[in-house]
Design a protein around this nucleic acid. Structure first.
Lengths: 167, 167
DNA sequence: TTAAAATAGTCGGTCGTCCTACTAAATGCG
DNA sequence: CGCATTTAGTAGGACGACCGACTATTTTAA
């Protein structure tokens, strides 16, 4: 009823395809919106798998990062740097993790500007369970063959590189 | 100083690469985090280009969608459906666009549950300028050849498809 | 025809991201 | 040495996305 009767199909396509040939370089726009859609899908899947453990993927990444550190703790600045997020995002994530009792803030004696984040026993436990859960899900990404996953990864890496992401 | 002296390099890599071989199927995790990083980069680029016009890419997409409609207006539900976002996200976007004077809400006489969104003159003007600005930016995505862009698009489409995105 | 179910939109709240601004502490340099 | 600059972290606020709950309306089906 809202479709133009002169056209055999609705002129507006689904997300990522609304660009058709109407706007400039539709190729790059279509790819851009497709990337955003895929991110939305993948993140929802990851967050969904982690929901039973009370954490999001963003917070899960923080836990992983801390657990990989040689000393068992990391300054917040390092976390932000490695996850490539704004310092305030780290403060936010650590606030929540600390409120959940999964992480503890410690002062850094060597540099009193810094605050270290350390996993609690509960944090280690949740991390372990969450990791198992993540490995167990039937991942949308697994809809691609290993080879295609590698191809996609390489293409995205080129894209990141050209955006100066490894500068 | 925080690097384990037993290792010749820091054990934790940059975002998207922190998975190395430590966690289960690192291949799909690496790809997942890479997708999220690319999304972050692309969206920042788009939002940055639109900033002078006072809108974000999310709101820009809404303007585009409305402008493409045959009647010049769309029910909010259609917008959400086509952009694949939650109804409340549409309400949010339209609230802001309306507050900016770029869009107007109209009652739908045919179905009184519905609200139509229509571009104002100012909205059409901003859309036109914003579109020019978007076409003019040196897009990170343009770091890929047309052929590689098409390849990436096809791979992501397969991924979306396997996630049931076109069901 | 009328009661149940589906649809449209909004409100309030959570979460993650970013930005600006600000404090405290460490570093660099004249 | 002492002041300017840089670095680390946080507070407050904007924004977009989501969820659950709720109202109003339309559609479906008994």
């Amino acid at each position: 009823m809202s479709t133009d009767p002169k056209l055999p199909f609705d002129p507006i396509e689904r997300a990522g395809d609304i660009w058709s040939d109407r706007i400039g370089d539709s190729r790059s726009m279509k790819l851009a919106t497709s990337i955003m859609r895929v991110q939305q899908l993948v993140l929802a899947e990851l967050d969904g798998a982690l929901k039973p453990y009370g954490i999001t993927f963003a917070r899960y990444e923080v836990l992983v990062l801390i657990s990989f550190s040689a000393e068992g703790s990391l300054p917040l600045s390092k976390i932000g740097e490695r996850l490539m997020v704004h310092p305030t995002s780290v403060t936010n994530a650590i606030d929540r993790l600390e409120a959940q009792g999964l992480v503890k803030r410690l002062p850094d004696a060597a540099d009193r500007r810094r605050t270290l984040a350390e996993l609690t026993a509960k944090g280690k436990d949740v991390l372990e369970q969450a990791t198992k859960a993540l490995m167990a899900i039937d991942f949308a990404i697994d809809g691609l063959s290993d080879k295609d996953q590698d191809k996609t990864y390489a293409l995205l890496r080129t894209l990141r590189s050209s955006a100066g992401d490894f500068a």
